[in-house]
Design a protein around this nucleic acid. Structure first.
Length: 557
DNA sequence: CGTTTTTGACCCGCGC
DNA sequence: GCGCGGGTCAAAAACG
C-alpha cells in the first residue's frame, strides 16, 4: 500500500511543538538485567477513506534491538490487541478508521526500564543477608521508580490523547468537507453534463488516493467502475504489477475491455480502445479525441528512455515516415488497465534529442518519482481546456496557421493546427544562458530533490520527468477542451543553446531544480489560463527558468 | 517459469 | 474503393 492521500500525511509536528520534543524521549539504556524499552507510535494521516490500517504501537528491546511487544490498535472499534500493558495499561487510543499512522509524522518514544526477572548468573551467586537486604532496598527503589514511571506514562498518555483528539477532529472536519462536496455534487446532478463533469474532477481530485497528486478523472469516468466489473482474468496479473487501482477509481469504458479473455498478459487483456469505444458509441468521437491529448517532451539524452518513475512495457515499435529512427510504444504497467501510454522517438534532425510523448492519465497511485508525469498530463489537460479562451480570441479557427505564436509579446508558445492530436510540446533542449541555472555552491548536479536519482547529473544519465516537471498540481477537466480543439498543438521551447555542453549542463541544472518545476507549471498554466501573460522571472526563486524568449522550433516527425 | 521484448500482421482513419 | 500511415495486437523469442 502506498501511503499518501490527497493532502499527504498530516503533520503533527506543530501540535507537538508545545512539548518541546518531549514526545521523543528516551532514557539511556541500562546494561545487565535492565532492558530499555522504547515505544514508538507512528502516525501517518491519510485522508484516503479506502485505507483502514490499524495503528501499530511497537515496543522495542533496545539492547537486542528486537521487537519484544507489539500493540495493534483498531481505530474503528477501539479494540487493542497488545502485550504492552506493563508499559502503559491505560493506553486507550482511538482514531477513526480513516486515519493511518506512519513513522515520519509522529514518533513517540518512551523509555522504560523493566526488570526482566532474569538477574543473571553473576548476581545469583550473592547469597548473604546483607545482600538480600540491599536487594530488598533496591527492589523498593525500583518499584518506586517504576511507579513514578507509570505515573509519568499516564501523564504522557493524556497528552497523547489530546493529540489524537486533535487528529480526530481534523479528520472529522475533512470528512465533513468531503460529505459537503458529495452533497453538492448530488445537488448538481440535475445541472448540465459539463458542470457535472467539472464536479467529478473536483471531487475525485480530493478522493483519488493518488498520494497528493490531484489527477483529473481524465478518461476514467465514462464507464463502469472497476470495482463493479472486474476483468475476468485479473488473476493472471503478476504480483508486482497487479496492484489494483483504488477501489473508487473508475476505469471507464475507455480502453477497458471487460470481455476479452485470451489468457494474455494483463495490459493486453484489458486494454482495447477500439472495443471500448464501441461500448459507448455516442461518445466515440469525444473519447477518441480525449485519449489523443498528449504531452510531448523534448530532452537531450543518450539513454533510450527518460526516467519518469513509472514502469513501462514496450508493446510495439514502428518506423515512422520521415524519421529513420523507430518509434517505440510503451504502456504503463504499474497497475492493470492503466490507460497511460507513451511513445519514444529520437529526433530525425538531432539524434541526441529524445522525444517522449505521453498520453492519458494514470488510474493508480503514483510513486513520488512518477508524479511528475501525472502532473504533466494534467498540465496538458489545462492547455486544452484553455483552448476555449484562445478560441474567443479568434486564435483557433479554420484559418489558423500551421504554426502560430500566441499573442504574448515574447512568443510564449506556438500553436500548430497541423497536429493530428492536441499536443503540448515541452522543449527542454535549448537554453541561452545556462549559467544562470546553475546552483552555486553545490553545483547543478547535487541538488537534493525528492524522487531524483543522485546520479542524475552524471551523463549520460537521462533527465527524469520529476526533475523536469516536479509535482505541480493542475486541477482541470480535459474532456471538454480536448473535444473542442482536437488539432491544437502548443510548443514551449527553451531559447537557443550556445554549446552542447552548456545545454546539457543547463538541462541538468534546471531539471534538478524544484523551482524550475514550479516555474514551468506556472508558465503552462499562465499560457493556458487564458490571461495571455508572459512568463516572468519569479523573484522568489534563484533558479527560475526564463522561458519568456520562447521561439518556434522545427519539430521532429 | 514468468515477464518483457521483438516483430510481422492486423485494424482503423484519412486522403485521394 | 484503395492505398498509406499510425497505432495496436499477439505469437514467438529473449531474458532474468
Amino acid at each position: 500500500m502506498t501511503h499518501g492521500g490527497t493532502s499527504g500525511p498530516l503533520s503533527l509536528a506543530s501540535s507537538l511543538g508545545s512539548r518541546g520534543g518531549v514526545l521523543k524521549r528516551q532514557q539511556p539504556m541500562d546494561s545487565g538485567d535492565h532492558h530499555s524499552i522504547s515505544t514508538a507510535i507512528e502516525f501517518p494521516i491519510s485522508l484516503n477513506p479506502l485505507i483502514d490500517a490499524p495503528m501499530v504501537v511497537e515496543a522495542k528491546d533496545e539492547v537486542s534491538n528486537d521487537r519484544v511487544v507489539a500493540t495493534e490498535m483498531d481505530f474503528f472499534s477501539g479494540e487493542r490487541k497488545d502485550t504492552t500493558s506493563l508499559v502503559e495499561p491505560d493506553l486507550d487510543l482511538k482514531v477513526p478508521s480513516l486515519t493511518r499512522i506512519k513513522k515520519e509524522d509522529l514518533t513517540i518514544q518512551t523509555g522504560l526500564h523493566l526488570h526482566t526477572g532474569n538477574t543473571g548468573s553473576d548476581q545469583s551467586t550473592v547469597d548473604d543477608g546483607l545482600s538480600r537486604n540491599e536487594d530488598d532496598e533496591e527492589g523498593k527503589n525500583e518499584l518506586a521508580a517504576m511507579q513514578a514511571e507509570l505515573a509519568r506514562m499516564n501523564e504522557e498518555n493524556q497528552k497523547l490523547r489530546g493529540i489524537l483528539s486533535q487528529v480526530t477532529t481534523n479528520f472529522n472536519a475533512l470528512q465533513m468537507h468531503l460529505a459537503t462536496l458529495m452533497q453538492q455534487r448530488s445537488h448538481q446532478s440535475h445541472e448540465t453534463p459539463q458542470e457535472h463533469e467539472a464536479m467529478d474532477v473536483k471531487t475525485d481530485a480530493k478522493n483519488d488516493g493518488h498520494g497528493g497528486v490531484l489527477v483529473p478523472k481524465q478518461f476514467m469516468d465514462l464507464g463502469p467502475a472497476v470495482n463493479d466489473v472486474e476483468p475476468s482474468n485479473s488473476s493472471t496479473v503478476s504480483p508486482d504489477r497487479s496492484a489494483s487501482p483504488p477501489a473508487n477509481v473508475e476505469v471507464g469504458s475507455m480502453g477497458y475491455d471487460l470481455h476479452k479473455n485470451d489468457g494474455r498478459s494483463t495490459s493486453d487483456q484489458t486494454w482495447n480502445p477500439n472495443k471500448a469505444l464501441k461500448l459507448n458509441p455516442t461518445n466515440q468521437a469525444q473519447e477518441a479525441t480525449m485519449r489523443k491529448a498528449r504531452v510531448s517532451v523534448r530532452a537531450r539524452s543518450e539513454a533510450p528512455m527518460i526516467t519518469d518513475g513509472c514502469q513501462w512495457r514496450k508493446y510495439g515499435q514502428k518506423m515512422a515516415k520521415g524519421n529513420p529512427c523507430p518509434k517505440a510504444y510503451y504502456r504503463c504497467t504499474m497497475a492493470s488497465a492503466c490507460p497511460v501510454r507513451k511513445q519514444v522517438q529520437r529526433c530525425a534532425d538531432d539524434r541526441s534529442i529524445l522525444i517522449t510523448t505521453y498520453e492519458g492519465t494514470h488510474n493508480h497511485p503514483l510513486p513520488p518519482a512518477a508524479m511528475a508525469m501525472a502532473s504533466t498530463t494534467s498540465a496538458a489537460a489545462s492547455m486544452l481546456l484553455s483552448g476555449s479562451m484562445w478560441s474567443t480570441d479568434g486564435l483557433m479557427n479554420s484559418n489558423f496557421p500551421a504554426r502560430t505564436t500566441l499573442p504574448c509579446s515574447s512568443s510564449v508558445a506556438t500553436v500548430s493546427a497541423s497536429a493530428p492530436f492536441p499536443t503540448v510540446t515541452l522543449d527542454l533542449t535549448k537554453n541561452p544562458n545556462p549559467l544562470q541555472y546553475q546552483r552555486p555552491p553545490t553545483g547543478p548536479f547535487s541538488v537534493p530533490f525528492p524522487g531524483v536519482s543522485p546520479a542524475f547529473g552524471a551523463p549520460p544519465q537521462p533527465p527524469s520527468l520529476p526533475q523536469l516537471f516536479g509535482q505541480t498540481l493542475l486541477q482541470t477537466s480535459p474532456e471538454m477542451a480536448a473535444t473542442q480543439f482536437p488539432h491544437q498543438k502548443t510548443h514551449l521551447v527553451m531559447p537557443s543553446p550556445s554549446t552542447a555542453e552548456t545545454v546539457k549542463a543547463a538541462t541538468a541544472a534546471i531539471t534538478t531544480d524544484p523551482n524550475f518545476t514550479a516555474a514551468l507549471a506556472a508558465a503552462i498554466k499562465s499560457i493556458i489560463g487564458g490571461n495571455h501573460q508572459c512568463f516572468n522571472n519569479n523573484n522568489g526563486s534563484s533558479n527560475n527558468v526564463n522561458i519568456s524568449n520562447i521561439t518556434p522550433h522545427k519539430s521532429c516527425s
